[in-house]
């Protein structure tokens, strides 16, 4: 565990040593600001529901951007060889990278707090759904990061990692829109696999253990696959 945290810490520090984290966070906050506050006064209601819908969409490009370099860049520059010849298990490496990215996600989510706070100062805000919303965002974001780590383990090219992670996340996100075209039986199964379904369910203000388990399963499954993919280098 200690070693996982060491790696997580290094990744987290590395984000802020370069410009990447600042660019991603700034873009996220600026876009959120524009799209949230513009219609806010038209609707004239102290609700942050649109904000959470918006943030879940904004995470789609953000999360893959945060993870794309995690393993791909190490493979491209060869530092992976230093890392994996140290007395570390591959699980330490995968777990550490993932946690480092989750740390950045937390920073990002914390920086959006002024938005609901300003809404609260303008009207009577119900904080229950806000807390549920942040929990849902955190879980969905983490699941996307895990998928990003997986995509990053496949390639040496950050762009490929970015687009494959983005596409998988987008597919899991958009799949609910195609449900009407699917046979009834299949539709409910497919729906269960979508981000949207569980996210929306949590946004209603109820934290259902099934939704939590869904996101945790996506995380576990993706990281396990990433682990396999990293390990396969030994036998290639």
């Amino acid at each position: 565990m200690q070693k996982t945290l060491t790696i997580a810490k290094r990744e987290f520090v590395a984000y802020f040593n370069g410009p990447a984290a600042y660019i991603v966070i700034c873009l996220f906050l600026v876009l959120l600001g524009i799209f949230f506050w513009n219609p806010f006064f038209l609707i004239n209601r102290a609700s942050v529901r649109p904000m959470f819908d918006l943030m879940s969409v904004l995470l789609l490009p953000t999360c893959p951007a945060m993870t794309m370099g995690l393993l791909a860049e190490e493979k491209r520059t060869g530092t992976v060889e230093v890392l994996l010849t140290m007395p570390l298990k591959d699980t330490h490496v995968i777990g550490g990278k993932f946690l480092g990215a989750v740390g950045l996600l937390c920073v990002l989510l914390l920086l959006t707090l002024p938005y609901p706070m300003s809404v609260a100062s303008l009207g009577n805000l119900d904080w229950g759904p806000v807390i549920a919303g942040y929990t849902a965002l955190f879980l969905q974001g983490s699941a996307m990061l895990a998928i990003g780590v997986l995509a990053s383990s496949w390639t040496e090219n950050q762009l490929i990692a970015f687009f494959s992670a983005g596409m998988i996340c987008f597919a899991l996100f958009i799949v609910t829109r195609f449900l009407p075209f699917l046979p009834q039986q299949l539709a409910s199964t497919v729906e269960w696999f979508s981000f949207d379904y569980h996210y929306a369910s949590m946004l209603r203000g109820v934290i259902d253990s099934r939704d939590v388990i869904y996101f945790l399963s996506v995380i576990g499954f993706s990281l396990a696959l990433a682990f396999r993919s990293l390990e396969s280098r030994r036998w290639s």
């Binding site: 290094r10 520059t77 060869g78 530092t79 230093v82 007395p87």
Partner: peptide, 16 residues
Amino acid sequence: EAIGYLPESNPLYPDL
């Protein structure tokens, strides 16, 4: 644990 290794082309983390 018993090894110190310098790989070919000496890869390092440039940002640190």
